[in-house]
Design a protein around this nucleic acid. Structure first.
Lengths: 203, 203
DNA sequence: GTCTATAATAAGATAGAC
DNA sequence: GTCTATCTTATTATAGAC
């Protein structure tokens, strides 16, 4: 019984932490990391700022948890991915403006000096570029239809995804993010009607 | 004489303001806008925070001046531009990491709620997409070598420029920003050896 | 586990002397 | 034009009661 009680307590504590991280994602989306106060995060989960510090001893510790959370729901693509899965990912992103806003704001801040997320983003982009190159290699081999190598194309693929996000966040009415991304894939030499082999020929 | 004296005073005041704006650009690059304190800006020009407020009555007023400054040195491309001039612009940018960092940080922050630069960036991107479309139309006509229209390609061009900047700022050693941008132009159908008609055929 | 109290700092802005 | 002094508000973090 005491074992079980301890388990429940731990589970409840984990749930609380997850709740706090979700709230932090929201507040960062609204105000950036530097602008996000612990008190504002705490308020959303019905805690005081000091109550929150029981779960995350410092603001930076909370940020670390936020970045770890990202690594979970936004896994780095691997070689099993096909290029058209990337298009689906962008479509999926277009349905979650909040989370895109969080990490676009964080990415922007991270280039400033001494930002606690800087190292995270630097390492993540190295990783993502490598993954994208692998995906492109799986799909096209050593040379893409346009003559570039996977390694040289990967930074462009990543740049388009990020850059479109900013334009779309600022003006969702004017920017069709998924459509533009598919246009980019077409530039890579992808035949837009080859994406789903099971599909009937469109008219 | 009094007229002349007044003139000199005004000129000196304008110089002071310009000095302050330059300092603000630096501090924003280092800490973002929200993280930039008026006192830090003032210190760089040998003023107190209150002395600075004599020239810019509020922090937002200073930001407005910073954004106006940008519009001057980073004019929106017009139809007289050729695509390879864009490549030169990216090369030029690669020599000015400070200023790129300032506006990358500002862009990132601007997607958060109620950010004073949000409207500026929204409007500027509308303008820049239109200009880029015009540049592409001048160069390629209604259909680009890859089949897309200028209007559909413009957001991609802008996205690549912005996205590459973030990757490059985070890891300049690993990202060849001008090279990657030229790769992108190649995707558009640009022949990389056609850029300078006066140049001898390379081997 | 969550609170109140509070310390320590820093922010933007105003008032008024010189 | 620039300063000192000061107000007001907000921040992160600590100490300790319950």
């Amino acid at each position: 019984m005491s074992y079980r009680g301890a388990m429940n307590a731990r589970v409840r504590s984990e749930e609380r932490r997850a709740e706090i991280v979700r709230a932090a994602l929201e507040v960062i989306a609204e105000r950036g990391y530097r602008g996000a106060s612990l008190a504002a995060v705490a308020e959303r989960v019905g805690l005081t700022q000091q109550g929150l510090l029981h779960y995350f001893p410092t603001k930076d510790a909370l940020l670390v948890a936020v970045l770890e959370e990202r690594d979970q729901w936004d896994a780095v693509p691997d070689t099993r991915w096909r290029v058209d899965l990337l298009a689906s990912l962008v479509e999926y992103n277009a349905m979650r403006p909040g989370i895109i806003q969080t990490f676009s704001a964080l990415l922007g801040e991270s280039v400033t000096e001494g930002h606690p997320a800087r190292q995270y983003f630097t390492e993540r982009y190295t990783q993502v570029r490598a993954s994208m190159a692998a995906v492109l290699r799986t799909e096209y081999g050593e040379r893409l239809p346009n003559g570039l190598t996977p390694e040289r194309t990967a930074p462009l693929l990543v740049a388009v995804m990020d850059g479109l996000q900013y334009q779309w966040l600022l003006d969702p009415q004017s920017v069709d993010m998924p459509g533009a991304f598919r246009d980019f894939l077409r530039l890579l030499g992808e035949d837009p009607h080859r994406e789903d082999p099971d599909r009937e020929d469109p008219d």
